[in-house]
Amino acid sequence: MTSTSEARPARQSVGDWFRNQLSNIAPFLTLLFLVAFFSFASSSFMSFGNLQNILQQVSITAIIAVGLTFVILTAEIDLSVASVANATGIVVAFFTLQDASVNIANIPLAGGFAIILAIATCVALGGITAIGVTRIGIPSFIMTLAMLQICDGISAMLVRGQIAYAVPSLVGELGSGSIFGIPWLIIVAALALLIGHVVLTYTRFGRYVYMVGGNREAAEYSGVNVKLIIAAVLMISAFCSGLAGMLGVAYFGSAQQNEFGTYLLDAIAAVVVGGTSLFGGRGGIGNTIIGLFVLGVLNNGLDHINIDSFLKILIRGLILLAALIINIYAERLRVSRSASH
């Protein structure tokens, strides 16, 4: 009896540490494993040029994932991110003078106005989502699904099956230009991640985001305006998506419908693979960065080892499933531990 009760605390604390860190350790090990694997399997993978490739490839996803991290930390979800990005990219092109060959009945404005209108559009879309979720009480899963469709509709109405190419010069520079050999897109994505991290970690608002996600009822009983926080994260998410959408149009070189199709899944995967809890309250931008690298290395590495491109899609799905399983188990371990007290 005495010996077991003495041995127990030590064993518990190691176990506790592991359980608490499981959601952080697992993604990092996954990343190390993938890097090691592709370095071994392909001679062209490990190079500075390819690192820049990877960074550039994940930049658009990264900007979207910053906003999505806020949303998922509050235990909500935003399924409209890619569609908001698409609609915002099309809006900025819609208000830009296009080449005569482009058959769109658009309204050319000065570049600054086009950008302001595009940002106003994505924030307004986020505002509608926020009202639906917090005022009317529609679950975010359903509300953002509706917004996904609405944004796709806006995109379709504006381009009517055509493709626009021109964007304001500022957007064009940030999306496809570079400075000292570093693409602006990478810099913008890094800044977005940095700002997201600082807000989440060092500001009062960031604390509220974690507390609302950790225990919504307790936050409300502590006098936190939970609805305001949720509205704010949904609007931050829409803003990030809009920013990504504008830069994406410049990065891809065109604005057309359905060009952000894969980004919804990629952004959610990056956040969740990184270890941010789908139940809210745990994780953060650091996790999202790891998740972005896992996805980026995976997508890029699979290109380097000359794998069947159809198999690639399946592998991505399996990796996401594995991450979800770890996410759920990490949460379950934590809950069972706290319940034993």
């Binding site: 974690y210 950790g214 706290s338």
Partner: peptide, 21 residues
């Protein structure tokens, strides 16, 4: 207690949440 406290957070975050403002 479940509806007023944050079980996975340290004590200091629990005692400050209502007065952060």
């Amino acid at each position: 207690r479940r509806s007023m406290l944050f079980h996975h957070e340290p004590i200091y975050k629990n005692t400050s949440i209502a007065i952060l403002e």
